[in-house]
Simulated scan of single mutants.
Amino acid sequence: MIRVRDLEKSYGDLAVLRGVDLDVAPGSIVALLGSNGAGKTTLIKILTTLLKADAGTATIGGVDVATQPAQVRESTSLTGQFAAVDESLSGRENLVLIARLRHLKDAGAIADDLLARFQLTDAGGRRVSTYSGGMRRRLDIAMSLIGDPPVIFLDEPTTGLDPQSRQEVWSTVEALAERGTTILLTTQYLDEAERLADRIAILHGGRIIADGTLAELTRLFPPASVEYVEKQPTLEEIFLAIVGEDDAA
């Protein structure tokens, strides 16, 4: 569903992406890990047509993001690091607004369906300013689903949320994947990647330096043993071993 080949992007003399290759299968969740400044958000911006690459190719569902950006936007949605909701409106009004901007019929019915799917029906008539962090993020993701895009990009969706709100968002993302939505998730929370991702890609030095399931990445890390009991490495230990502790700091 998502295919990236030899993607490059520089800001002046700073090369951020230096030949990125990445594949995301339909209906799967891929977590993109990397230190601050590794280029995760830059890659997401290129894939969502907000930024142009210097070299390489990227396609969404076989559609080139550089030459057919309008078609790509019709089939994708982006949820950024901060909830893009209007706090002066109610949850339902936010959803109706987006549905109307997309020129969809029965905007009210679409809003009511999404409120139900995201367990927000009781709060639908309240102003978003009264919502908790998890509720705002769930509403934000619900807004991104209007029009049923087959591909969703989640750029650090749980940044700044408390543990309970993070659990709410995780459950929401898992439900989306069960419905067949393809999800590319960037995160700095390694437990989030462990919980959600079918595959994990590590972006470092402008390239994808590791890509596989958690089990496959675990095999890259030699097991330690204490009194003949094998210790399985955590994803955090694997990540630091691959990129180096100094680079990840």
Rank of each mutant, 00 (worst) to 15 (best):
G205C: 06
M143E: 02
I141E: 00
L7P: 00
A38D: 06
S75A: 13
L43R: 06
H204S: 15
V24P: 02
S165L: 10
Y189W: 09
S90K: 02
D191I: 09
Q71F: 07
L17E: 08
R127D: 03
A197L: 10
M1G: 06
G19T: 11
G134Y: 02
L22C: 05
I238S: 00
T172P: 06
R219Y: 08
E245F: 10
V24T: 02
E93Q: 15
P26D: 11
V151N: 02
T42D: 09
E237F: 03
T234H: 00
D247F: 15
E174Y: 06
F82A: 13
D86E: 14
D54G: 09
D246M: 13
I60N: 01
V30S: 00
I46S: 03
L114Y: 03
L7D: 05
L240R: 01
A248Y: 12
Y131G: 01
L43K: 05
H103F: 07
R166A: 07
R137N: 07
E236T: 06
T234S: 14
D246K: 15
E74N: 12
L139A: 02
A58D: 01
T42N: 07
E227Q: 14
G160H: 07
A123K: 10
E236Y: 03
L104P: 04
A99W: 00
T121H: 06
T79G: 08
F221Y: 15
A224I: 13
D64C: 10
T130I: 03
D198P: 09
D106W: 09
R138P: 06
S10F: 09
R138Q: 11
A70Q: 13
P163L: 10
D140A: 15
T79L: 12
L235V: 07
V4C: 11
M143Q: 14
S90A: 13
G108R: 11
G91A: 11
S88R: 14
D6N: 15
T159L: 14
Y11R: 12
S225T: 15
D198M: 12
D122W: 05
R199V: 13
I242A: 03
D64S: 10
G206K: 03
A70D: 13
A58V: 04
E192A: 11
A84W: 04
L161R: 07
G124C: 08
T79R: 02
Q167T: 11
I141K: 02
A142M: 04
L43W: 03
D106V: 05
L190S: 07
P163K: 09
F221P: 00
Y228A: 14
Y131T: 01
V229N: 12
E178Q: 14
G108S: 10
I110V: 15
A175G: 13
V16K: 11
A142V: 02
E227I: 09
Q119Y: 12
I110C: 03
T187D: 05
V20E: 05
L120A: 06
A193P: 00
I208N: 06
E236V: 01
A123C: 05
E230V: 13
L51C: 10
P149D: 04
D155Y: 04
T172D: 08
R100W: 02
G180N: 09
L145W: 04
A175M: 09
T41S: 15
V63Y: 02
T186M: 07
Y189P: 05
E227H: 15
T67E: 14
I141R: 02
I238T: 01
L203K: 09
L190K: 09
S35C: 04
M1H: 11
I202F: 04
D106F: 09
P223S: 14
